[in-house]
Amino acid sequence: MKNVQFISLQPNPIIIKELRIRMRGIRPYAILTIFLIALVAAGYGMYHLMLRQALFGGSMLSFQVGQGLFSGLALCEICLIVFLAPAMTSGAISSEREQLTYEMLLATPLRPASILWGKLVAALSYIFLLIFAAVPVFSVVLMFGGIAPWDLLKVFLLLLITAITCGTIGLFCSSLLRRTSQATVISYSAILVLIGSTMMAGSLWSYFSGPIWQPVPPELLYLNPFSALISIVTVTPATSTDFFFGGDVFGLPLLSQFAAGVVHYGPNGPVVLPIYRATIVFYLILTVALYWISTHLVLPRRRWIPRWSDVTFAVLLAVLIGGTWLTHDWWRVLPPPSI
């Protein structure tokens, strides 16, 4: 055997290995099939729910059905992402440590950052597959009207960024902790805090604000992916005088729980605040920051000594923060004055 060339332009070996393991057998295809069937069933159920509302006197036009279905299906997808992404990544590094293969990987020329990148891409690629496989199901809402293709794109952008952020949170915990069980618990806890605390604050704000019944400040909801989703899928908010089972949002009653602070009622009627812009911006910053720290956590030695890659991350983060600052007129939306 001759000496080996160590410069390679080949695909990341971790991605190939992970995909080989993950896509083997019938399981991944069965999960995909079950997911699509469940999504179709959920959409069908929502459709019938809305038809029943019409029977009880609620106004139900075709565009409203389209918007309701759109909201419900998007909620199903984001739930799936929030619960699946950390599960896919929280064992990425810790499982290598647990099965004693991490040291063998570190003995190769593969850089720890490449291991991290390969793990993230491999884990998220399956979630992306689920998201893209759902596109035909989503396209059904276009038949009912009420939704512009641009809204669909915005939802998919939010879903992808939420998947990357939740995946990076799992990856960070996996790099930080030695055991997968600990990493899973901590990453789910972090996501629960991210969603739960903002949702709780949004729900309770009106009761404890002074004077009482003040609208929730949108800043409280920036990091909640559900609120961001509401701000996209609520194309036509229900007016406060409407009787509608879904409350502020067409579709499922549950969705209205996330609408507090997103839909504001001003003198000129209800206004939907585009919270999703701030969510996307802050999720990107959070993702880069967590990934940067993770690249140091996975190092076996000289963990916190600055490296050249840190310059790249610092520049990227500076660009993102600078861009966020410069575009604050776009993403920082002020609520209209209350009625």
Partner: peptide, 24 residues
């Protein structure tokens, strides 16, 4: 204490490490 990737085939296991070393 060495680990092995249980879900890989024998040739895939070696192929993976060969990729890590950048073999074409």
């Amino acid at each position: 204490f060495f680990g092995v990737y249980d879900d890989l085939r024998v040739w895939e296991y070696l192929d993976f490490f060969a990729r890590c070393y950048g073999l074409d």
